[in-house]
């Protein structure tokens, strides 16, 4: 079973989720009223839309993550061959990791790792 398995799984996922939801549409009794369409906020009418400019402390994390994740992907090819290459690979990755680690420490000291 080759890469067609991936397509099969994709189709399976779509078919299963779609079929489930459509089946419930067909089977379930629907009776719409205004209250049912309201946004749930503990029984109190909601104030305005929630699609406003929103201050979350996580954009910084997303940025740091991007840096680290790209570096992480670089490590996969390295990891497969490190045993064969031996010591030189270790030194290379040490330098690489050292720089990354410094980056992390910098972010830490800068306070970028505090959720505000």
């Amino acid at each position: 079973m080759g890469s067609s398995a991936l397509i099969l799984l994709l189709l399976c996922g779509i078919a299963f989720a779609g079929a489930g939801i459509l089946l419930s549409l067909a089977v379930a009794k629907t009776k719409k009223n205004a209250q049912k369409g309201e946004t749930y906020e503990c029984g109190i009418p909601t104030t305005g839309t929630s699609w406003i400019q929103f201050n979350v402390g996580y954009y910084l994390f997303a940025l740091i993550f991007l840096v680290f994740d790209v570096e992480l992907v670089f490590m996969y090819p390295w990891a497969t061959v490190v045993k064969e290459i031996g010591m030189p690979a270790l030194f290379e990755i040490l330098v690489f990791m050292f720089i990354l680690f410094m980056g992390l420490l910098y972010a830490w000291k800068k306070g970028a790792l505090e959720w505000k």
Partner: peptide, 26 residues
């Protein structure tokens, strides 16, 4: 960002309504 916690909320232990002004999570 104003959010209503309660009266129908799992952690208000009853029908208490708190109106909470938020700045992100704070």
């Amino acid at each position: 960002f104003v959010i209503n916690i309660g009266p129908q909320h799992p952690s208000t232990h009853g029908v208490l309504h708190l109106k909470v002004w938020l700045d992100g999570e704070t």
